[in-house]
Write a protein that binds this DNA or RNA. Structure first.
Lengths: 343, 343
DNA sequence: CGTTAGCACTCAACACCATCGAGTGCTAAT
DNA sequence: ATTAGCACTCGATGGTGTTGAGTGCTAACG
C-alpha cells in the first residue's frame, strides 16, 4: 500500500488538529475540517490504512487517532521543505543589549522560552582549540600574585597565586617575558612536561611560581571545557498535561537541573558539524528521560571556531512550525554576532 | 486555658507523627504512640483543647488533626532550644575540593539537597563595601586593552576595551599609575562626576580611554551586586504530594528559575545581621508563592565582610531537626573557609 | 469500484450510590 | 479526672449504569 496524495492530506490534517487540541481526532472531525468533501466513513477507511502504515495509532479501541513517532517525523520532514518564511520579530531584542556574553545567552534562552512556551536551553560557545592568547602576572599585594590568562575567543580567566616572599618589579617582568615568549599560542596539549621543566630551569629560584602558574593555566583551559548551559522556561512543562504527571515532570526538571544530562544532546548535535536544524521526536531522542518529548536543536557559530548549541524541548505535539522558526531566528542572530565576544 | 505539660507532650507527638506520615493523625494513634498511658478519649479531649488554642486543625470534620502554622512554630521553637547535637558527616566533603568559589557553592547546594531531600539554594557572597583593591590595564593586542579589576574579597572582573590607535608602553604605564593612585580603595559611591572629569583632564588625549575604563569599573561593581544564586534538588518538590499538584509545583519551579524571586528571602535573612538560623513557616514566608512551604535559612560569612546565604525549602511538614542540623553544618563549614576566596 | 449511509459495537468518562472505616464529640459510668 | 461506649460525620473506595464519541463492517448507491 502506498501513501497517495489523499492519504497525505488526511494525515497532515490529523496531525495538525492533534497539535492544536491535544485530543485524539476522529473521522468526523477530519471529514468537516478538510475541504476534501469526503464522508466520515471514507475517512475511516483511509485512517485504517494510515494506521496499518504506522503513521497513526489509537490510544484505545473506541478513540480517535493520534500521530505515532513516524507520523510526526513525516509531518516535520514535509514541513521543513515547504517552510521558508521567516520570523521578523525578536531580531533587535538581542542586539539591543550588548551585554556580557553570559547575559546575552541567558537572554537568548529566555527569549525563546517566552516566544514558544516550551523549555529551552543555550550552551555557551566552546573553542575547539583553546590556545593561549595572552598571559600576565601582576603583583596584587605582598602575598598574592594575580595571573590573568586570555584564551582564544577572548575567554578570560583569573587565578590568585599565594607567594611566600615579596617579588620585586624586575622579577615580575622577567617572569612575564619568560611565560609569554614560551606559552603564547600554545594549546593545552602542547604544554608538555619537557616544556615545563625547561621553563622551571630558566626561572631559576622562581621555579615553584612557574609551576603554580602552569598548573593554573592547565586548570583554566580544562575548566573552559566543562561547559555552561543556560536554561529557561522549565516550568512550561506544566502547560502540557502529557508531560506533567509527577514522574515525568520530575525527571524532566531533573534533567534541566543536572545539566550534564543535556550534554548528550550537544555531542549529538555537534557530531557531523552539520549546520542544519535537527528534530528529535520521541524515541529518537538521545536522552532517555525525554522520550515523551520532542527536541529541536541547532548549532550557532561565532567567529574563530567558537560553537555552541541552542535547543527547545516540548511535548511531541509541539508547534513545530513556530519552534523551527524561532530557532532559525535566534541561530542567525547568534551567527552574525561574532566580534562581540567579550567576557 | 493554658498549655500545660501534658498538652505539650501530646502536641509534639502529633506533629512528629504528622511529619513522618503526612497523614492527619487521630487520637488512637497518639494514645498508643506516646508513653502517657492515656486512652484515646482523653487524648480527644486534649486535642479539642489544642485545637481551641490554635495549634492544630482538622482538615475536615471526621479526620485526624494536622499542625497549624502556629503549631509548627511552637515545635520548631522548642526544638531549636534543646537541639545541640551536630552532624559529623559532610564535614570533609566540602573541604576536600578546593575548587573555585562557584564550584564550591554549587557543591554546597547539592550536598544539602542530597542530604535532606528538599530543594536548596546558596547565594554567592556579597561584599558590603565593594572597594577597588587593584586595577590594571594591559595591552592585549593592537586593537584591545584588557582591564582587570579586583574588588575587595578578591572578586576579579575583566573587561575588554576597544581602542582606535596603538598605545605604547609608556602611555600604558602612565594610565595605570593615574588610575591606581586615584581609584584605589574607593567604592562605587565614591567615584563621582568630579573625580571622573579630573581624571579625564589629567589623562589629556587619552581621556576617552579613561572614560571607558571608569564605565567598565562602574558596571563591574554594579554587576557584582546582582547576585548569583545556586540551586539544587528542585525536583525533590515532587516527593511531597502537598506541593506537587500542578499549579503549586509550577510556581515553585518558576521561583527557582527566576532567581530574583528569591532575593526577598535574602534581604529578609540579612536584615538585622543576625547570625541565627531562621525558620519561616507557611504564611510567615516573605515569598508569596511559597506559602505552602517552610523555609530554613542562615547566613554564612567569609572573612572581610563577604556574606552569603544558604537555604532549604520544603513542605511544612519537613524534618526540621535534620534540616537545621544540615544548615548548621554547612554554615560552619563555609564560615571557617575564609582564606580560600579565589575566583 | 469508489463512496457513503447505517448499524452494532467498544470503551473512557462521568455521575450516582452504597459501603466502609477512621475519627470525632458527648455522655454516663468508673 | 479518666475512660468506655455510642451515635454521628464524612472522605475514600468501589461497583453500576449511562452517555457519547468513535470505530469497523456491510450493504446500498451512482
Amino acid at each position: 500500500m502506498e501513501l497517495d496524495e489523499r492519504k497525505t492530506v488526511i494525515l497532515k490534517a490529523i496531525i495538525k488538529n492533534y497539535l492544536e487540541t491535544g485530543e485524539p481526532v476522529g473521522s468526523r472531525t477530519i471529514s468537516k475540517y478538510t475541504d476534501l468533501n469526503l464522508s466520515s466513513a471514507t475517512i475511516r477507511n483511509e485512517m485504517a490504512d494510515l494506521e496499518e502504515l504506522g503513521f497513526i495509532v489509537q490510544p484505545h479501541t473506541s478513540a480517535g487517532r493520534i500521530p505515532s513517532d513516524k507520523g510526526y517525523r513525516f509531518y516535520v520532514d514535509s514541513m521543513m521543505l515547504e517552510h521558508e518564511k521567516e520570523v521578523e520579530q525578536l531580531k533587535d531584542v538581542l542586539l539591543e543589549k550588548e551585554e556580557k556574553l553570559d547575559h546575552m545567552l541567558k537572554q537568548a534562552a529566555k527569549l525563546m522560552a517566552v516566544n514558544t512556551n516550551y523549555a529551552t536551553m543555550v550552551t555557551a560557545p566552546r573553542n575547539s582549540r583553546n590556545a593561549i592568547k595572552f598571559l600576565q602576572l601582576s603583583r596584587m599585594d605582598d602575598a598574592h600574585i594575580l595571573a590573568v590568562i586570555v584564551i582564544e575567543g577572548n575567554v578570560i580567566k583569573n587565578t590568585v597565586i599565594d607567594v611566600e616572599e615579596v617579588l620585586n618589579d624586575e622579577t615580575m617582568l622577567k617572569l612575564n617575558i619568560l611565560l609569554n615568549t614560551h606559552l603564547n599560542g600554545l594549546s593545552a596539549e602542547e604544554i608538555n612536561l619537557g616544556l615545563i621543566s625547561s621553563l622551571k630551569q630558566q626561572a631559576g629560584m622562581y621555579g615553584p611560581i612557574i609551576a603554580e602558574v602552569i598548573d593554573a593555566v592547565a586548570e583554566t583551559i580544562k575548566e573552559d571545557e566543562d561547559l555552561e548551559i543556560y536554561t529557561s522556561g522549565t516550568n512550561n512543562i506544566f502547560k502540557y498535561p502529557e508531560l506533567s504527571d509527577n514522574q515525568k515532570a520530575s525527571d524532566l526538571i531533573n534533567a534541566f537541573e543536572e545539566k550534564q544530562l543535556l550534554t548528550q544532546l550537544i555531542d549529538d548535535t555537534n557530531e557531523e558539524g552539520s549546520n542544519e536544524i535537527k528534530v528529535y521526536i520521541g524515541e529518537e531522542s538521545p536522552i532517555q528521560t525525554m522520550k515523551d518529548c520532542s527536541i529541536v536543536t541547532a548549532n550557532y557559530e561565532f567567529g574563530d571556531g567558537m560553537r555552541g548549541m541552542i535547543g527547545i524541548i516540548g511535548p511531541k505535539r509541539m508547534d513545530y512550525d513556530k519552534v523551527v522558526g524561532t530557532i532559525k531566528t535566534i541561530k542567525s542572530q547568534l551567527d552574525t554576532m561574532y566580534r562581540k565576544d567579550e567576557k
